[in-house]
Design a binder for these strands. Structure first.
Lengths: 150, 150
DNA sequence: TAACTTATATAAATATGTGATATAATTCTT
DNA sequence: AAGAATTATATCACATATTTATATAAGTTA
């Protein structure tokens, strides 16, 4: 990969690699509850928007409709979500996240924040400032990424 | 004290949330090969360092030693890794990633870079510059995170 | 209203993961 | 240097998860 010669020009490859590395670290942070990747993903999706239809969940996650139905059944058994009918359409099931389910996502998030904080302490004040300055752009990058989802 | 004069303080919570969102998007980028999370994780680990012992892999991934042994057997069957003996210790098996295995990681990385590039195009030049300016600090954050792994 | 479509569920087969245990190679102990 | 303990990997039996194909019920359309 050719490094960009223009000063301060954004090297997307470099960004992707750095991001990959950070993701790798975060994924490997130890956590108490042993929930599968798919389980956490569905819970996380529901923590952003609840309730959701099973079909909607199926579209978001990378498992089949059958897989989602069964996963939701397990989550319901464990009290992390609830199935409720949709008054306007008798076919659909609306999956609501419970307080217990939301707590799991929330506490994991707090763990991550704590870990990230200790890592951040190793940065110089100047480095921290560059990260802080980039936050708005990164947030917008996320919005752009969401908007472009087909 | 005007808010403008206050140095831009880094909000770790905000960083974690933005990072979470970006991760979420990247994970959901469509990809052709349907390999499980664990499979990809092991391949990715090996793409960073190969060969590795099974025990070493077990320590990195979140499955049992038995699980890793079986996963490696499957990967070997699919031609993504190779088992070779360690000349210095007759007990150990060294798992080498093959070109085919490395290609999977590489092509997925290229996909991610391409997608990120299109998202980045939506940023203003100023925004891109803040991201570019933060890259060195983010890279160092990754190094710090790696170093602190217990 | 019959035919089609959509949303979810179920069943059977397959894939994946765990825990307990086995085997072989190495290291430690005396 | 032999026997005991340890380490690295493999295997077996079982549990859990996921897919494919199909079923059922509700809504939509011609």
């Amino acid at each position: 990969m050719e490094p960009n010669t223009t000063p301060n020009e954004l090297d997307v490859t470099e960004f992707a690699l750095v991001f990959e590395e950070l993701t790798r670290i975060i994924i490997r942070l130890p956590s108490i509850e042993k929930l599968s990747f798919t389980t956490l993903s569905v819970l996380h999706t529901l923590s952003r928007k609840s309730p959701m239809r099973l079909t909607e969940l199926t579209a978001n996650e990378q498992v089949t409709q059958s897989g989602i139905t069964q996963l939701v059944t397990r989550l319901e058994r464990d009290g992390l979500v609830e199935r409720r009918p949709d008054p306007t359409d008798g076919r659909v099931v609306l999956v609501h996240i419970t307080a217990k389910g939301a707590d799991i996502i929330h506490s994991r998030r707090l763990d991550r924040i704590a870990q990230l904080s200790t890592f951040m302490e190793g940065l110089t004040p100047e480095e921290k400032e560059t990260v802080a300055a980039a936050l708005p752009a990164l947030r917008r990058l996320g919005e752009l990424g969401n908007g472009m989802r087909t």
